[in-house]
């Protein structure tokens, strides 16, 4: 069974003061296996963010189902949804979303504290992750004292510490310089090698070329997908780039 199955997902936005309806997602179907590393690409307005919000249980679809481990997350009620999100999903955001009021360590602990874990247990969980991400030396510092690349690694640590089923990354390299981007992507690959499932939404061809599979969204549907297979990183890059060109020039659906 797939880890994540998205079935006939549809989302229509209705603005409050007008009758205008905006179709953000019309019919999205795909599934992700455990241990996969998937990137979703698409232009602005293609529905990427809407899709991610629904996968993150931050938004409800108009119709359709999202099954995570066989459980439909669109049906989970309001009370349990936060706990569900904490325990099963990990988030990495473009703008890091670290709290300046917490030290980096406390930022990483945040989801665990919310789940009422004990301090010694949290400490035990933190050690291997901090070592893997190379952030041991900055744990005592505060988010405003470290660089963007470091911030993103702290955010990744926060996403990993609950050992989530799925990591959702929203433009994780968007605010980083090229060196930090490179580092982060290598990190994602490494994490993925440890059997961590990752779903990343991105604009960046470079970021997407690290993934095992790339989904292209256009006009609210999954328009196309490319599998990495045994392609090299460069071939993958070229492939994605070509696809995007076709998409941009309005090519027909590629079967």
């Amino acid at each position: 069974m797939s880890l994540l199955t998205v079935n006939r997902l549809k989302k229509v936005y209705t603005t409050r003061f007008s009758q205008n309806q905006v179709l953000a997602l019309s019919d999205v179907n795909f599934s992700i296996e455990k241990g996969e590393y998937v990137a979703i690409m698409g232009e602005s307005g293609s529905g990427k963010t809407t899709l991610l919000n629904i996968l993150a249980a931050l938004d409800k679809p108009t119709s359709g189902t999202v099954l995570l481990n066989g459980k439909d997350i669109t049906k989970i009620n309001e009370k349990e949804i936060c706990a569900f999100r904490r325990n099963h999903l990990g988030f990495v955001f473009q703008d890091f979303n670290l709290l300046d009021t917490f030290s980096n360590m406390d930022n990483i602990f945040l989801p665990l504290v919310l789940s009422k874990k004990k301090y010694p247990e949290m400490k035990l969980k933190l050690e291997p992750i901090a070592r893997q991400l190379g952030i041991e030396s900055i744990l005592k510092k505060y988010p405003y004292e470290i660089s963007g690349g470091q911030k993103q690694r702290v955010a990744v640590a926060r996403a990993l510490i609950t050992h989530p089923d799925l990591i959702l990354a929203d433009e994780p390299t968007g605010a980083l310089d090229s060196k930090s981007t490179e580092e982060l992507l290598r990190l994602f690959s490494k994490i993925n090698e440890n059997n961590q499932t990752i779903l990343m939404v991105t604009h960046s061809i470079k970021a997407a070329s690290h993934a095992q599979r790339v989904l292209f969204i256009k006009d609210g549907v999954v328009f196309h997908q490319i599998y990495r297979g045994d392609k090299s990183m460069d071939e993958m890059y070229q492939n994605i780039s070509d696809t995007l060109t076709v998409l941009a020039t309005g090519g027909a659906r590629n079967e």
Partner: peptide, 15 residues
Amino acid sequence: KRFEIMQKVGLDKRE
């Protein structure tokens, strides 16, 4: 802003 972030990380509205 602070509470927006906390919600994203998984703090529910009641809390």
